[in-house]
């Protein structure tokens, strides 16, 4: 009776796929959450990514830098889904960014040894941070998510966002200024209420 020669079949295929993608799932979910803004949308986005790349699983171990590659594919999927939602190309928001003046709105977060009242204040502040972040334009959220939150280098981001490094640097600068401005406005509105 002939011996069966091993061929990379479906079972081992799935195993290899999970071995390769498993370590990146948590990171991909976090990034998807930054892109999409909600848990269901983030889970759907990661799901779409896996469905998209599964047919190419035989090539994945040859990808030199898998994490930025996955981020790029997921970013493209996100853009596609936004386009479908809007039924037209994305309109980029023009930010009239101005740096905040006066007291630094991040002071709460950087305080150490907080008491219970300060902890509550910190929680409220975190809510404001999220609210301000969500108000950022799509482009600004992307660069802050990738660079300042998830730690991608500018070089990696040029691949993910298909954008020159100089543009990314100035976009990052504007995004931070805009975020600071939005946070200040949110906090001031809260104080008035």
């Amino acid at each position: 009776m002939a011996k069966i020669l091993g061929f990379p079949n479906q079972g081992s295929d799935q195993h290899n796929f999970e071995q390769l993608l498993g370590p990146h799932l948590e990171h991909l979910y976090r990034l998807a959450y930054r892109f999409a803004g909600t848990k269901p949308d983030a889970e759907d986005l990661v799901q779409d990514l896996l469905i998209k790349i599964y047919p190419r699983r035989g090539e994945l171990d040859k990808v030199e830098k898998l994490r930025p590659w996955l981020a790029r594919v997921m970013y493209n999927l996100f853009i596609d889904s936004k386009r479908r939602q809007n039924r037209s190309p994305i309109h980029l928001t023009i930010d009239n960014a101005t740096d905040s003046e006066g007291s630094e709105p991040l002071d709460y977060l950087m305080s150490e040894n907080l008491g219970p009242e300060d902890e509550t204040a910190r929680h409220i502040h975190n809510v404001h941070m999220l609210r301000s972040f969500e108000q950022l334009s799509h482009d600004h959220r992307m660069v802050l998510s990738l660079h300042d939150i998830e730690g991608y280098t500018l070089e990696e981001m040029t691949t993910i966002l298909v954008c020159p490094i100089g543009t990314l640097k100035s976009r990052l600068h504007r995004a931070r200024a805009r975020f600071r401005g939005l946070l200040k406005t949110t906090l001031e509105t809260q104080e008035i209420q």
Binding site: L21, L25, Y33, K39, D107, L130, D148
Partner: peptide, 23 residues
Amino acid sequence: SLREALRQLTIESPSSDFRERVF
């Protein structure tokens, strides 16, 4: 401070069966 605060932005955790379900 801004960078540190951004890194501290919390997100909702994925569903407990997320990994199994997504594969």
